[in-house]
Design a protein around this nucleic acid. Structure first.
Lengths: 206, 206
DNA sequence: CGTATCCTCAAACGATCGTTTGATTTTCAC
DNA sequence: GTGAAAATCAAACGATCGTTTGAGGATACG
């Protein structure tokens, strides 16, 4: 009998996400993960095959929905004459902010994502590039359409810098915290607006 | 007889910096470090006391000079009437870019620094805050003087986002690489100019 | 009821980790 | 040259790691 209504597989994924965010992929052991999930140690290798495969599944579970929402939002505005830079940035940022405030471990996952960028794990980088690289490419193409005065080099430069600022801000190791007199939804809306204005200014300056 | 003109201590620090950058603090073992340095395994605990103390010494060796140069550059321009935002950004960025192109492991150290931000190691964060927090505070104060129309909240927001972009760009996990038809010094100058214009636009937009 | 399949479990495997020990060698002031 | 201090060395310590094993329980289907 399970000690919960959730399956062993689900319980492992939830516990792994939290411990990977707090301790890193190498810092969190499978013994810690399975203890937090309330399952047997061998369950990870039974259900996922290896620790590496568990890590990839943690990413897949979140990124499939996150990047799906991004592509939906982009498809609604791409190529249209009235679309402006802020619209494209909103399509990229809003889904990530919603995820990081969904009260369901999403904020933890954004920290996991930031770790994945800082650690130069090649197998993980290849996994992310293979599965989600088309998202970055489509957004960059739309940025290029809206910033025709920029050379290809210049565009790559600025998109790269914006990516750094966004990753930093959304991973939660920034300094900004919600003040107690501001509601959760209002704070999220403020965060999106700050990010979009900052990124738009950095992308489009002369 | 040493197999080199450098001391055991120095050889350990150089090898540790490279391996920490490539593999992370937990990923790089003391056996790998001492093997790369060509010294005995016990030398780390003899000369530094522990692995944690070795990590702090790797930071101290670089950050003392880096932040010293930043403070020198800031002192030359702070509070002066003709100083503009780009000057303050140059004082902050130029020493870091010089370090990351000094051909002496400086680029590797910038990646170590990015890892330190991504990993939420409390003892390391406390060490950095205690020893180098005054640098960030003085730069933020000067930014505030030059951007008086911004509220304190707004200023913190933007400085935080700029920090993210800079850390990202200088840690080398950005996409931008030097093209073969551009000289090393010219590429460094281009990088500084890109960063400064991007950061200035993000900081000062209306 | 019988049995095949999925799942869980305690236990152990070999490998690697940071650290310590005690002996040995090197260095250097006197 | 001599003795104390500093430095290096091979070897071992206990702990923890990811993974595997084989037995046994749970479940579903004929």
């Amino acid at each position: 009998m399970n000690s919960s209504t959730y399956s062993t597989r689900q319980r492992i994924l939830v516990a792994a996400e939290e411990l990977f965010a707090r301790l890193g992929f190498e810092g969190a052991s499978l013994r810690q993960v399975t203890a937090a999930a309330g399952v047997n140690l061998a369950a990870v290798n039974y259900h996922f095959g290896s620790k590496e495969a568990l890590i990839e599944e943690v990413f897949r579970r979140r990124l499939d929905e996150l990047n799906g929402r991004r592509m939906e939002a982009l498809a609604r505005i791409a190529g249209q004459p009235q679309t402006v830079l802020e619209d494209v940035l909103t399509a990229y940022i809003q889904p990530a902010l919603e995820l990081s405030h969904d009260g369901n471990g999403g904020a933890l996952f954004m920290r996991v994502l930031a770790r994945a960028f800082a650690e130069h794990d090649d197998t993980l980088r290849t996994f992310l590039s293979n599965n989600y690289g088309h998202v970055i490419r489509q957004f960059t193409a739309e940025f290029g359409r809206l910033l025709p005065h920029l050379s290809k080099d210049e565009l790559y430069w600025r998109v790269d810098l914006v990516t750094g600022a966004l990753t930093h801000a959304m991973s939660g190791f920034g300094l900004i915290r919600r003040r107690s007199d501001v509601s959760e939804s209002s704070h999220r809306e403020q965060t999106v607006q700050h990010l979009i204005r900052f990124a738009a200014a950095g992308l489009s300056h002369p």
